[in-house]
Simulated scan of single mutants.
Amino acid sequence: MTTEVPAGLRERKKARTRAAIRDAAMRLFTEQGYAATTVEQIAEAAEVSPSTFFRYFPTKEDVVLTDDVDPAVVAAIRAQPPETPVVDAVLAGMRQVFEQLTEEEWAGERRRQRLFDEVPDLRARQLQQTVAAVDLLAGVIAERLGRPADADEARTLAGALVGVTLTFLRPGEAVSFHLEDFDRVRRALISLRDHLAPL
């Protein structure tokens, strides 16, 4: 008789394996450099096979590029009360997720950002992630507005939110967005709305 592993246990095991691969990769990237580190070395350090590595990350780049925070932010935005204005719901969701990050998670994000600064190939693909972030944010904004996922209104607001957020990044810091910056983003969005209104 075959005993099926409960879904919750299976998901936790997958999350542990994924975290082990990422931790091993980041450690090796720090110790011997990104370019010198191979998938085979990462798999060995994580005590998995190379084929298991590729089940979790399509390429070595994806170990660094995959952002675990974005899906959590989308879930937090969805969880905001339906009567909350869209911008407030987005900012509240973002704040909620960032406030709950542990020091270990912040340290991991700092390592990730340093690699973007140091590795040109990663930096180029990071630009693609900005577009993906707009897509993700536009989807959840469209849900809250009751519009189709590709609605121009949702994409415009998502682009404005991402663009305004980028203006407050602090040069030279590995993780340069701080909790107090959420209020600055909100004020900037109100200013943008007021300046655009007469047009």
Rank of each mutant, 00 (worst) to 15 (best):
E44T: 14
E44W: 11
A45W: 11
A45L: 08
A46M: 12
E47T: 13
E47C: 07
V48G: 01
V48Y: 01
S49A: 11
S49G: 11
S49I: 09
P50I: 14
P50T: 06
S51R: 13
T52Y: 00
T52R: 03
T52A: 14
F53M: 09
F53L: 15
F53W: 07
F54W: 07
F54Q: 07
F54C: 05
F54L: 14
R55P: 09
R55K: 11
R55F: 04
Y56G: 12
Y56H: 14
Y56D: 05
P58H: 03
T59Y: 01
K60G: 05
K60R: 06
K60P: 07
E61N: 13
D62V: 03
D62A: 15
D62M: 02
D62H: 06
V63W: 01
V63P: 00
V63M: 08
V64W: 00
V64L: 07
V64A: 05
L65F: 05
T66R: 12
T66A: 10
D67N: 13
D67R: 06
D68G: 14
D70W: 14
D70T: 14
P71Q: 05
P71I: 12
P71F: 10
P71R: 05
P71W: 11
P71E: 05
A72N: 01
A72T: 10
A72W: 10
V74T: 08
V74W: 15
A75D: 15
A75T: 08
A75Q: 14
A76G: 12
A76I: 06
I77C: 04
I77V: 13
R78E: 15
R78G: 08
R78A: 12
R78Q: 09
A79G: 09
Q80S: 10
Q80K: 08
Q80E: 14
P81R: 03
P81W: 04
P82D: 12
P82C: 07
E83P: 05
E83I: 05
E83Q: 13
T84F: 10
T84N: 04
T84W: 13
T84G: 11
P85E: 09
P85W: 10
P85G: 01
P85A: 03
V86K: 02
V87T: 14
D88G: 06
D88I: 09
A89F: 10
A89Q: 00
L91P: 04
L91F: 09
A92F: 14
A92M: 10
G93R: 12
G93Q: 12
G93S: 04
G93A: 02
G93D: 08
G93M: 06
M94T: 06
M94I: 07
M94D: 04
M94Y: 12
R95V: 04
Q96L: 13
V97D: 03
V97W: 11
F98L: 13
F98G: 02
F98W: 14
F98A: 04
E99Y: 03
E99F: 12
E99K: 12
E99R: 14
Q100P: 04
Q100M: 05
Q100A: 15
L101C: 04
L101P: 00
L101N: 05
L101E: 03
L101H: 07
T102G: 08
E103P: 00
E104Y: 01
E104G: 01
